[in-house]
Design a protein around this nucleic acid. Structure first.
Length: 851
DNA sequence: ACGGGTAACGG
DNA sequence: CCGTTACC
């Protein structure tokens, strides 16, 4: 099994022989009992129970060698942990044939893999040996984490998974809009996604530590400094804080904002023991960065203070912290997940601090604190309590949206809650695929097998260093265009995978007869005899989202609560669909399949090209297009209808009106335009003036510029708007030249992509970062460095004065920022700021300035 | 550490 | 050419 196998001794309540409907939240392996277990959350009592496997399931790996040959391998059959050899039949999806393989069964997971001298290490090749044991157990028993189960006479059985009769008829109706082979998979998804998600009782915890060295975060491995406060915020209303008073002087319990229960302790040990008692009472415990800090610190500090290990509910894995009774969710890990950040929360937060995430999602800012070491006991308590409360709120806002989202992701991905909250989308998709392989009796191929059978890519990427060609981005038609309609293909890549039967098991199949069935724009062919696994999984997820969840998330005749639920499901599905293509092009993905990613992108290009051609055929001018969109110059509704109908009929992909602009402004740059909607709202894409790193003075000026453009109704109004723009540019230019600004206004804010040491070059922000470090600041990857540009250098904004600023440089930045719109408006920056017009040959011949 | 490629801009 | 940010 996996090297990272966590062997945890759970010590929670054991499930009785009969337990009512409960949600399967988690699973693991108990090293002492040598059994797999699952954790069940029973919503009536709101308690968590452990159910130990009693089916005799054992860990194993697969070998392609016959039983007899393995019997002769003394290192395998003579291994202490060896149990048995069993021949089994598996379907080899790479060859399309059934094959006989041998199950090498072991007594415990570490004997399979992960320990020195394990069985895997004595075999040249093995399959399915890197799956964590609890995953293996879930797959084999066809368990779905997040779904209801019961314990009946000691056996774990499915709870009620049936589709509620209230939706069954409607669901059957939408199935008539899909293809036959997707109906059953969609019904299966509906069973998982319609099953209600119960409220989960939980508590958030946050600790504060008094650092011995100022401005230095105390090391959780050493845990030398005292824990001064521990706050709890529970879904049951618990608002409690434990505070340390080691001053030797009597201290009265302060009034802490938001806390109902405040106790002051002279013994830190007492605080820790009480903390452990609270943690043990909850099925789910939330932290923000508990894996790396709070739980690590608590665990180690408890040890240092002589709290017996058997009172300590925290188990430290290599990267994560687990609880022996409940489920620990580290929200820092969850919100850091790029798919969650992007597709579920629309990139509303950028930094991964509790403050930033909370203020953008909850609109609750934190108390600003300069130096925690300086806080008095009350302020420290307020601060700590607030963090615990905000952490809890992150899962509770919008009617428990985030909890529901995690449970749903757990069902789709067949992953336990701990993994959903910590792993990236590639692990979720992997887990889903592995589960499906086991369900169908397919052998899960090793990464090498796929590469050897399917080879690499055949197209050339536009950007060097990339593996294959991606999407098309058309050259925009520069200028101002009125009445622009943007159509885009809904779920283009998932649709490509669905419609072209794309999957690692169908691409470049072994059949001669399929060789003519080429993916457009590639030399890859696709199987015509069997349905591909990825195609069915992604196809059914896409269809159920488009046909069922998407419409119902906005649907009429539903309560607000129902719509909300459909919306959460719809978002969870989106996360999967959007990642489904990328993972197959990622070398780190165990089912990495370059031709699959390449074919998906190729179908996308084909669809966009065809749509562009068809538009022309219909007499519509295409102004621009990127990946899955076409920008059409004042099309009639008949024309767009015809285009949509064509896409549906010829490509089987939904092409829908995404937005309509009163007018749009394009320069020659791709991924760079401004659209003004009919109601005056603005849609600004890719412009420098919108990027987050640029100085506020430029951003503010740019915002004013777009504001002016947003007010323009007709062509006739442009001259007046241009006058306003002239005034605006002149004013900002003047402020810059006269240094009429505060330093912060001209500071760039650039994020540090990696630790300072890892840079071979010295970009400006890295230079400034190094200076900050010299001044004693801690500078880590992910920090946003604020700096200003001076005559021959850069300076961190904190130590700069307006007179240091190189205003000539800033004039250039202003020009760069504004030019993107000014050229489209036929305005010259030079003229606006009173510089003589350039009389280069380029200008003479009317060649556009390069940029 | 953990999805992809395309593109702009500044140094 | 690198690094960052944005688009899709």
């Amino acid at each position: 099994m996996s090297e990272e196998e966590e062997i945890i001794q759970p010590k929670g309540r054991v499930a009785p022989d009969d337990l009512g409907s409960s949600i399967l939240l988690s699973a693991g392996y108990d090293g002492a009992l040598q059994k797999a277990y699952v954790r069940l959350y029973e919503p009536e009592s709101q308690e968590i129970y452990i159910w130990y496997d009693n089916t005799g399931h054992l860990p194993y790996l697969l070998s392609k060698k016959p039983v007899e040959e393995l019997e002769a391998n003394r290192r395998v059959v003579g291994h202490d942990g060896f149990k048995s050899l069993d021949p089994v039949i598996k379907f080899d999806a790479l060859t399309g044939e059934e094959i006989m393989v041998t199950k090498v069964v072991a007594k415990d997971p570490l004997s399979v893999g992960g320990s020195p001298g394990c069985i895997r290490s004595h075999l040249d090749e093995s399959w399915e040996s890197r799956i964590r044991y609890y995953g293996c157990y879930i797959y084999d028993e066809h368990l779905v984490p997040g779904m209801p189960y019961r314990v009946q006479g000691g056996r774990l059985v499915q709870g009620d998974w049936s589709l509620p009769s209230s939706v069954e008829a409607q669901f059957d109706e939408i199935l008539s809009h899909t293809e036959e082979h997707l109906k059953e998979p969609m019904r299966d998804w509906a069973r998982l996604l319609q099953s209600p998600v119960p409220r989960i009782r939980r508590v958030a915890v946050d600790i504060e530590v008094r650092p011995s060295v100022r401005n230095r975060v105390p090391s959780p491995d050493e845990a030398k400094d005292p824990i001064t406060a521990v706050a709890f915020a529970g879904s049951d209303g618990l608002r409690k804080i434990l505070m340390l008073n080691d001053s030797g002087l009597p201290v009265e319990a302060p009034r802490i904002e938001g806390a109902d229960e405040v106790t002051v302790h002279e013994s830190e040990r007492e605080i820790i023991q009480e903390t452990f008692r609270v943690l043990d009472r909850y099925p789910v415990v939330l932290t923000f960065n508990g894996d790396d800090f709070d739980f690590k610190y608590l665990r180690n500090r408890a040890r240092n203070l002589g709290v017996p290990d058997d009172e300590n509910p925290i188990t430290l894995g290599r990267r994560f912290a687990f609880l022996t009774n409940g489920v620990h969710i580290d929200l820092y890990q969850f919100f850091r997940n790029r798919s969650i950040q992007g597709y579920a929360f629309g990139n509303v937060y950028r930094e991964h601090t509790l403050d930033e995430i909370a203020s953008s999602i909850l609109k609750e800012g934190k108390i600003a604190v300069q130096d925690i070491a300086e806080l008095g006991i009350k302020e420290l308590g307020d601060y700590c309590m607030q963090d615990a409360y905000i952490t809890y709120q992150l899962t509770a806002f919008n009617d428990d949206l985030v909890m529901d989202l995690m449970v749903l992701l757990s069902r789709i991905s067949k992953s336990i809650l701990e993994d959903v909250s910590r792993m990236g989308v590639s692990r979720w998709i992997l887990s889903l695929m592995e589960w499906e392989h086991r369900r169908l009796g397919w052998l899960i191929p090793n990464t090498q097998d796929i590469i050897e059978a399917k080879g690499g890519t055949t197209t050339e990427a536009i950007i060097k260093g990339k593996k294959y060609q991606g999407a098309i981005v058309r050259d925009p038609v520069p200028g101002i265009h009125f009445e622009v309609t943007v159509l885009d293909f809904a779920s283009l890549y998932p649709s490509a995978i669905r419609n072209w039967n794309l999957s690692y098991d169908t691409l470049l199949c072994t059949h001669k007869e399929c060789r003519g069935n080429l993916v457009p724009g590639t030399r890859h062919w696709v199987c015509t005899k069997r349905r591909g696994m990825t195609s069915v999984l992604i196809g059914s997820l896409k269809d159920i989202r488009v046909l069922w969840y998407k419409p119902r998330s906005r649907g009429k005749g539903l309560s607000e609560g129902e719509r909300q639920y459909y919306n959460v499901v719809q978002q969870a599905l989106k996360v999967f669909l959007n990642a489904s293509y990328g993972v197959f092009g990622a070398e780190s993905f165990p089912l990495y399949c370059p031709p699959l990613a390449e074919s998906t992108a190729a179908v996308g290009r084909y669809a966009l090209e065809e749509a562009t051609k068809k538009s022309a055929e219909l007499g519509i001018e295409v102004l621009y297009g990127d990946t899955d969109s076409v920008f059409l110059n004042h099309p009639s509704s008949q024309q767009t209808d015809a285009l949509t109908a064509w896409a549906d009929e010829k490509l089987g992909i939904d092409l829908e009106v995404d937005k309509v602009y009163r007018y749009a402004v394009f320069s020659r740059r791709k991924k760079n335009y401004l659209g003004v909607y009919k109601d005056g709202r603005l849609d600004v894409k890719g412009m420098t003036g919108k990027k987050r790193h640029i100085p506020p003075i430029l951003k503010a000026a740019f915002d004013e510029l777009t504001g002016i453009l947003g007010g323009v109704q007709t062509v006739e109004e442009f001259p007046a708007a241009k006058e306003n723009i002239r005034g605006l540019v002149e004013e900002v230019h003047r402020r810059l030249m006269e240094r009429d600004f505060k330093v912060e206004e001209v500071a760039f804010q650039m994020q540090l992509g990696k630790p300072l040491r890892q840079y071979d070059t010295s970009p400006q922000h890295v230079k400034a970062g190094r200076m900050l470090e010299e001044q004693g600041y801690e500078v880590v990857a992910g920090d946003i460095i604020s700096y200003v540009v001076t005559r021959d250098d850069v300076v961190p904004a904190v130590s700069a004065k307006p007179r240091d600023v190189d205003v000539r440089k800033y004039e250039e930045y202003l020009e760069g920022t504004f030019e993107q719109l000014l050229d489209a408006l036929d305005m010259s920056f030079d003229e606006l700021v009173g510089r003589p017009r350039q009389t280069s040959l380029g200008a003479f011949f009317g060649v556009p300035p390069k940029r």
